[in-house]
Amino acid sequence: MSKQATYKAFRVEEIDNTYVSTIKEMPFSNVTEDELLIKVSYSSLNYKDALSASGNKGVTKKYPHTPGIDAVGTVVASKSPKFKVSEHVIVTSYDLGMNTDGGFAEYIKVPASWAVKLPKNLSIKEAMVIGTAGLTAGISVLKLSELVKPEDGPIIVSGATGGVGSMSLKILKKMGYKTVAITGKEVEINFLKDLGADEIIMRKDVENMDKRPLLKSIYAGGIDTVGGVILENIIKSIQPMGVVTCCGNVASPKLDVTVFPFILRGITLIGIDSQNYPMKYREKVWEKFASQWKLDQLSDTATEITLAQLKEKIDLMLQGKLKGRTVVNVN
């Protein structure tokens, strides 16, 4: 247990119907049965964190609150037989940073069932470059790769400059897949090429595709992070027996397609829920990141910031002006 009386946290408060963020000193609370107290080394910035920090009640119901759905650090107090003091652990998703105070703080207290031991051959910073976005990408690629192989054809990825999209491109390249990236940002074409995209198409061209129930079958699979018309047109462009995973709805939660892609081409649509992904599969994905999917110079690909820089980056994320991964050094 820390000998400090308080610790620093990025707190969001509701004041006169506006949401104000400041770094505050917070008191420790007792660790109870099957809980861990973790000294956080890094967190990362995700879209859900930006929503929580701006008062989205669909993400966080009560304020004051500390966002941060990702954290990696060292166990300093344990009431669980599974974890020992001084072990490095990763905590991503579940309720962390949503209605439970999250990783934008020097310490977090969480149920032991939320924690994964940091795999060997993976650094604490690499774990947060991956984070929930990487975990979501990893689950998506794992599911897709069970049914579609690199020789079957290209994989199309939407929201390609975002956290999930950019990590998906990296993993797919590592596994030998040809990839096509969808983006609305012409200025990021070189960034996407550096991630491993073999081809880049603009979002407006995908949105304006023909309204027919089926389009020319081009792609063996797809990883969609945005939903809406983009997802609809990806589904309609998939080859027979192809696979599409979906994990986001920032464009729209609605899906306006016929059954034809599914019954005439045998398309499989797989929904991805990394928030409550079962622990045994979660551990499998993390081990892959430390072995077969080990990404070169991963830490160098992310932007590192401090707690004091969070508000600026959150505003940019909400404006769609961030790319890749942003990790938060809470120390």
Rank of each mutant, 00 (worst) to 15 (best):
G134L: 15
V129A: 11
K109V: 00
G134F: 15
K178R: 11
V129H: 10
T132A: 14
P111R: 06
G176I: 10
G163H: 10
T183A: 07
L169P: 02
K120S: 14
M167Y: 00
P119K: 04
A133W: 11
K174G: 02
S145V: 12
A115D: 10
M175Q: 12
P150Y: 03
V157L: 01
G163C: 11
I124Y: 09
I124W: 06
K149F: 12
G176F: 07
G159K: 02
E151K: 11
K120M: 12
K178N: 13
K120P: 10
K143Y: 11
K120C: 12
W114G: 04
E126G: 09
S123H: 13
K125W: 14
A160S: 03
V141G: 10
L135H: 12
A137T: 14
E151W: 06
T161P: 05
G163Y: 10
T136M: 15
G138Q: 08
L135C: 09
P119C: 09
K173F: 00
P150L: 06
M167L: 03
S145E: 12
D152T: 04
S168A: 06
A115R: 08
D152Y: 02
Y177D: 09
A160D: 01
G162Q: 08
T132F: 13
V157K: 00
W114R: 02
S166M: 07
A127D: 09
S145R: 10
I171N: 01
M175H: 10
M167F: 02
A137N: 14
I155Q: 00
E126W: 07
I139N: 11
A127Y: 06
K143C: 10
E151M: 10
D152A: 05
K109C: 00
I182F: 08
A181V: 02
L169Y: 03
K170E: 04
L122C: 14
P119Y: 07
K109N: 00
A115M: 08
A137Y: 13
T183Q: 06
K117I: 15
L135N: 07
A160P: 00
A181E: 04
I124K: 12
I155P: 01
A137D: 14
I156E: 06
G131Q: 15
G134V: 15
M128V: 13
K170W: 03
T183K: 03
L135M: 13
K149W: 09
P150K: 04
E126R: 09
L172Q: 01
D152V: 03
T179D: 06
M175R: 12
S113P: 07
V129F: 14
N121K: 06
